[in-house]
Design a protein around this nucleic acid. Sequence first.
DNA 1: TTTCATGTAATTATATATGTTACGTGATGG
DNA 2: CCATCACGTAACATATATAATTACATGAAA
Lengths: 154, 154
Amino acid sequence: MKRNSRLSVALHVLLHMAEQADKALTSEVLASWAATNPVVIRRTFAGLRDAGIVGSTKGHGGGWTLLKPLDAVTLADIQAALDEPLLALGKAEESPGCLVEQAVNAALDDAVAQARRLLDERLSKITLADLAAQIGPRRVVLAAAGCKDPHHES
Amino acid sequence: MKRNSRLSVALHVLLHMAEQADKALTSEVLASWAATNPVVIRRTFAGLRDAGIVGSTKGHGGGWTLLKPLDAVTLADIQAALDEPLLALGKAEESPGCLVEQAVNAALDDAVAQARRLLDERLSKITLADLAAQIGPRRVVLAAAGCKDPHHES
DNA sequence: TTTCATGTAATTATATATGTTACGTGATGG
DNA sequence: CCATCACGTAACATATATAATTACATGAAA
């Protein structure tokens, strides 16, 4: 992996959890789905837990469970829970003495804030249920062709 | 510096160039404005040159010149010329075998593409002339207070 | 009380962006 | 024509950010 992919990972794992509903699933199982490390899952999901999207229990038979129905969780909820940067635009200097740079920073701050609002607005209209609905067709097509779900053979 | 600040640097330098109009300015001068290295300027401005926003000449008296009037260059033009990532959202895997992850990637690609369009739309409505107009007032205010333009004392 | 699973700190690895050095190319002035 | 200047670029070094890993503590269940 290379870039900020926490949202991608979270969505992937959450949808798999939905298929195994109700069972508490360990970080290790979740990590195998995302081809990553259990600790990465715990870190990523810590925000989701704080946001009430998932719950975790310790000890025997413990693990992670989805606490909300799929249509009650939007991508914006998840994004917010993960507290990601989202936009890659940075500034050369945060508090410049130069008047020109001050004006540049102000203009960029403005545009970035607006872009963030617009993206958030878009993400808030997509629920996990919407994504799940897009998986169904793919699975059916492949199943008809006699394929198994090719999950992480690596 | 830390993050993707090429747009910030480019805007800062371009506006300073506008104040010294017509004279060819060396990478070294431009770099001193941005508190960076001449080579960084050359790299950053290579895209702007290809886009016809600035020109460069070699040899004695050579350097960089603005080729377009300030109101003919939008932030979207500059952004496009620099070819920056813009959005920080990445994917865990680019071409996953997993159907769930395929659906996640598709949805994210969609949302990101839309956000990019929206941000670009916003940036295309701001010209360098708009930014320059925002500098004037600040400078006047400070001059009245007896301050010099405090440029990069560090 | 042993085992299992999360919680979290600390460390290492890797990727990206930026800073720097070095050298090539073309243009200008003597 | 040749020394100088300035861009063009490759190669290398450094800094920061994200992810992967290790280690250990805490709490719950058998």
